[in-house]
């Protein structure tokens, strides 16, 4: 019965078919220090080297049977290609994700930007595409491979001061809308390259528009149209992710046309499921740090069962899996999802 591969299971889920059990995968970063240790790579080095990136992304499947391969691991790829300078913290022995060091827009008057010529060959977009190809060759027959782009609002928060962006989205929504429209074009171009490189699905990470920060009203009026625009241009299944208290916007997230939506631990999945109906693909929603990293294996198992009981279509983390996840917790997660039936 369970002779199908993880890849077939995940693809079947996306295509709307019946699956033999709930898949356990992610559309966000899931590299672990166990994986990095097995390869002898430093975290700071895997962001700038296609082979290292691909190797690292494959380790969660190879070591623990995680049902996907996803890269990159940071949130700066599009912003860098748009002209921002990034910091990968090369000096640091700690696990630090790259951040934006120098933004493109410094104040309100600089918001009228253009997408650089030859955008798809800027920054690390080609590197990510190369890494997707390598990862696909390595594990692509066994698991679905994915990548992600930022949502337009989250990307805007990378290329300009979040402080300004938030205030302007209230004071001058037209101006912000114009920028989001332009960024949507850039996001569509980057995602198009990832599709050409062979990804099976793409997650659009719009965590900057969480209802913890922005009202559902602004989400619907200012951000929704551009998410919809992006989803409309993607050829592979799109997953929209937002964090925080998302219960008021899950319907909008799905109305973008996204194949699936992804929510974190602050979402009440039972309520979301009621709102979205039984057929909608709803991914989530365990806490990737306070459960997966710091919980005991038994607590991890209980959390996975709860996700399934609450009604997720795939057990999927609320954010990137934090690298220091202990091996026994990763194993406990997989074991629980494989063996538990609702």
């Amino acid at each position: 019965m369970s002779d199908i591969t993880s890849r077939e299971r995940v693809l079947k889920l996306f295509s709307g078919g019946e699956v033999d059990r709930t898949p356990c995968f992610s559309g966000m970063g899931n590299v672990s220090t166990e994986g990095l240790k097995a390869l002898g790579y430093k975290f700071a080095s895997v962001h700038l080297d296609a082979k290292k990136m691909a190797d690292s992304a494959a380790t969660s499947y190879k070591l623990f049977g995680y049902e996907c391969g996803v890269l990159p691991f940071d949130l700066c790829v599009e912003a860098e290609a748009l002209g921002c300078r990034i910091n990968v913290y090369a000096h640091s022995e700690d696990l630090l994700y790259p951040t934006i060091k120098e933004k493109v827009i410094h104040n309100e008057n600089e918001m009228d930007i253009a997408i650089p010529d030859n955008f798809i060959n800027k920054g690390r977009i080609p590197l990510v595409c190369e890494a997707i190809g390598l990862m696909k060759k390595d594990i692509g027959n066994e698991v679905a491979v994915g990548s992600y782009v930022l949502g337009p609002f989250t990307l805007a928060g990378q290329i300009m001061e979040l402080n300004d962006l938030l205030k302007l989205s209230f004071k001058k929504p037209d101006k912000v809308g114009k920028l989001l429209d332009l960024l949507s074009e850039a996001i569509i171009m980057a995602a198009g390259e990832y599709e050409k490189a062979g990804v099976d699905y793409i997650t659009i990470r719009e965590m900057g528009a969480t209802s913890d920060v922005l009202s559902p009203r602004v989400f619907k009026s200012l951000i929704f149209p551009y998410l919809k625009k992006i989803v409309g241009k993607l050829k592979v299944p799109a997953v929209i992710h937002t964090c925080g208290k998302t219960n008021d916007i899950v319907t909008s997230m799905l109305e973008t046309g996204a194949r699936a939506i992804s929510v974190d631990q602050k979402n009440d999945v039972q309520e979301s499921r009621k709102k979205l109906g039984k057929d909608a693909l709803l991914f989530g929603n365990f806490d990737p740090y306070n459960v997966l990293v710091t919980g005991a294996p038994e607590a991890v198992k209980e959390a996975m069962k709860k996700c399934i009981d609450d009604g997720v279509s795939a057990v999927w983390p609320g954010c990137d899996i934090w690298p220091t996840v202990p091996a026994e917790n990763f194993k406990a997660m997989m074991e629980a999802v494989k063996n538990y039936r609702r």
Binding site: N163, K167, F170
Partner: peptide, 14 residues
């Protein structure tokens, strides 16, 4: 009570 969100909070702070 979620009548205000972060943008409003920032403007109030100003």
């Amino acid at each position: 009570s979620q009548e205000y969100f972060v943008p409003e909070l920032l403007m109030c702070a100003d």
